[in-house]
Write a protein that binds this DNA or RNA. Structure first.
Length: 291
DNA sequence: GGTCAGGTCCTAT
DNA sequence: ATAGGACCTGAC
């Protein structure tokens, strides 16, 4: 177990911010969460330490934390500086960053993120989660998760968590191997993308994407079947960490029309507008729930 | 029971 | 080049 006190971190806000689909609360009321990413998984507990600081425990060694989770949660970036840069006269954005305190833009696995956002199109978050979980259960290998020493979380040590499947594992069942996962018409996009990413050639393509600039990565992704501008931007932002990518979906369209009729001030936030997009998107979701 | 989901593809102008 | 319709499915 590794413990750390952090600012601008709230695992619940991150979980609900729409960028990731495989973090879930472990106990309904508690403050323990299970985060699965690629073939890694960890339990996370958090407790407010002060107004703006959180005590966060990870059920892994310090080594695994610094090798993987530290970067995954983007813990080396100064989000306070980003929040401070927001125009105080911008009422919507100011409200959004207050509401979304604790958000961070994750560095998710590229292949997993491509599939996740292929599934996300014209879909709702509940169903996206269900489909991805079902895909992992059917095609992904079981992985073990360390429990907390004092936790009632031992049920997870028996291998009930599944890794995100490899492209090869997705291909294994053939074209009909994805039936029954609730993917609908998206199953063909996913199957073709698995063919694209499988094998030596597929790994090289993924590697090329990793090394590409935002502009080049966008162009490469847009050539693929089932990937349009919005999904491509999500992949650039949530996996490749091009934080200037600014995905515009139905919610963002509504926000831009309602609050930025003269256009969003991209030049003021050049280089990191995608992070602000995430606060705005999350804020919109919370508003919808209560109205 | 319709409507709506973090869109994209395909076809017709 | 751009607009409009079709699309799987289930949660609400």
């Amino acid at each position: 177990m590794y413990e750390r006190i952090v600012t601008d971190f709230d695992i619940r806000t991150i979980m609900d911010s729409g960028q990731v689909f495989r973090i879930r609360p472990l106990s309904a009321a508690g403050e323990t969460f299970l985060a699965a990413a690629g073939n890694h998984a960890v339990l996370i507990r958090q407790k407010p330490e002060s107004e703006d600081r959180m005590r966060v425990s990870f059920s892994c060694t310090e080594e695994e934390f610094s090798d993987f989770w530290n970067s995954y949660f983007d813990l080396d970036r100064d989000y306070e500086a980003i929040r401070r840069s927001v125009d105080p006269a911008d009422v919507f954005l100011t409200s959004a960053i207050r509401c979304g305190y604790g958000i961070r833009i994750l560095r998710q696995d590229l292949w997993e993120t491509i599939i996740s956002f292929l599934v996300s199109q014209n879909n709702n978050i509940t169903r996206i989660r269900r489909s991805l979980e079902a895909l992992c259960e059917r095609c992904g290998e079981k992985i073990s998760v360390n429990a907390f020493p004092d936790g009632p979380d031992d049920s997870l040590t028996d291998g009930s968590v599944h890794a995100f499947p490899s492209p090869e594992a997705v291909l294994e069942g053939g074209p009909d191997g994805l039936d029954g996962l609730g993917l609908g018409y998206r199953d063909k996009y996913i199957f073709r993308m698995a063919q694209r990413c499988a094998g030596q050639e597929g790994r090289e393509w993924l590697g090329l994407l990793q090394k590409s600039s935002y502009e080049d990565a966008l162009a490469l992704l847009l050539k693929e079947y089932g990937i349009g501008k919005k999904v491509a931007d999500c992949i650039c932002l949530f996996a490749l960490h091009h934080v200037d990518a600014f995905p515009v979906d139905t919610h963002m369209k509504q926000i831009l029309a309602a609050f930025y009729p003269e256009g969003f001030p991209f030049s003021r936030y050049e280089g990191y507008a995608g992070i602000l997009q995430q606060y705005m998107f999350y804020y919109k979701l919370t508003q919808r729930r209560t109205s």
